[in-house]
Computed example of a mutant assay.
Amino acid sequence: MRILVIEDHADILANISEYFTLKGCGVTGALDGVTGLHLAMTGNFDAIILDVMLPGMDGNRVCHKLRSVSRQNTPILMLTARDELEDRLTGFSVGADDYIIKPFALSELFARVETVSRRSTGVRKNVLQVHDLTFDLDSLEVKRAGKLLKLNPTTLVLLELLMRKSPAIVKRREFELALWGQETHDSDSLRTGIYMLRRTIDKTFDVPLLHTVHSMGYKLQGPSGGEVSIERH
């Protein structure tokens, strides 16, 4: 699963991110409502964990804008420190799918996120995303910053492997097995494929995503900053 966590307490955000990452999720984090709203509207997530009390824009407003403006149906689980019925009803009225009261057990939070995510799987797309690069595995459409990119079958295989393992390093042998199985090919074939992929996804954009790790392989990774990490789902 790919999860967006919008939480202004850095320690809580870090704890959620660490736990969900250990569970095999890709986690993106935001410390304020405005940043969280932007990430939610431009990214592709299986679920959003949204704190109610946020700087810049509170969680209820973020949820309302996602539902009423961008028409998103991504499951939203809201966090609150206030155990009042009126607060919970407000959250549900703006489009929240579930509510959990602070303090909470990380295991319960994960179970609830899994539950709301399963409910929506019928309308979710099979899409990988790293930073502003998306790969729809059903249609084989690759976009960066909304721009449709053209990739050949070889570069599509390379990109899928890189995105699934992002931000981890993919070793040359892994690429070779994905492309040719046990058959042997000269190293120039792989270098050519990587060159073509880099030219397509990075050349006309300001932020490079495809990085060479000398003597090891390659990795796909977005810039660091407000996001805790960016991985596949």
Score class of each variant (00 low, 15 high):
L148E: 03
L148I: 11
L148K: 13
L148V: 14
L149T: 03
L149C: 07
L149I: 04
L149K: 02
L149F: 02
L149A: 04
K150T: 15
K150H: 13
K150G: 13
K150M: 14
L151M: 11
L151F: 03
L151N: 06
L151A: 10
L151C: 13
N152T: 11
N152A: 13
P153K: 08
P153V: 04
P153C: 04
P153M: 06
T154C: 07
T154K: 05
T154W: 00
T154P: 00
T154F: 01
T154E: 13
T154V: 13
T154R: 11
T154M: 13
T155D: 10
T155H: 03
T155N: 05
T155P: 00
L156A: 10
L156N: 02
L156H: 07
L156S: 10
L156R: 14
V157W: 00
V157S: 09
V157C: 11
V157D: 02
L158S: 03
L158D: 01
L158H: 00
L158F: 00
L158C: 06
L159T: 01
L159S: 03
L159R: 00
L159Q: 00
E160N: 13
E160Q: 15
E160D: 10
E160T: 09
E160M: 11
L161A: 04
L161K: 04
L161C: 09
L161G: 00
L161S: 01
L161F: 00
L162V: 03
L162G: 06
L162A: 04
L162P: 09
L162M: 04
L162F: 05
L162E: 06
L162Q: 08
M163W: 02
M163Q: 07
M163A: 12
R164M: 11
R164Q: 15
R164A: 13
R164C: 12
R164T: 14
R164D: 06
R164S: 13
K165G: 05
K165I: 01
K165V: 01
K165F: 02
K165Y: 04
K165Q: 15
S166Y: 08
S166N: 05
S166G: 08
S166K: 05
S166D: 09
S166R: 03
S166Q: 10
P167D: 11
P167G: 08
P167T: 06
P167N: 07
P167F: 09
P167V: 09
P167E: 11
A168S: 15
A168F: 10
A168D: 14
A168C: 10
A168R: 14
A168G: 12
I169G: 07
I169W: 10
I169A: 03
I169D: 07
I169M: 08
I169R: 11
V170W: 05
V170Q: 05
V170R: 07
V170N: 08
K171F: 14
K171D: 14
K171M: 15
K171H: 15
K171W: 09
R172M: 12
R172F: 10
R172S: 14
R172Q: 11
R172K: 09
R173P: 03
R173G: 13
R173S: 15
R173Q: 13
R173C: 12
E174C: 11
E174S: 14
E174K: 06
E174T: 14
E174I: 06
E174M: 12
E174L: 08
E174P: 10
E174G: 10
E174R: 06
F175M: 07
F175V: 05
F175W: 01
F175N: 05
F175S: 05
F175G: 06
F175E: 07
E176Q: 13
E176P: 01
E176T: 09
L177Q: 12
L177N: 06
L177I: 10
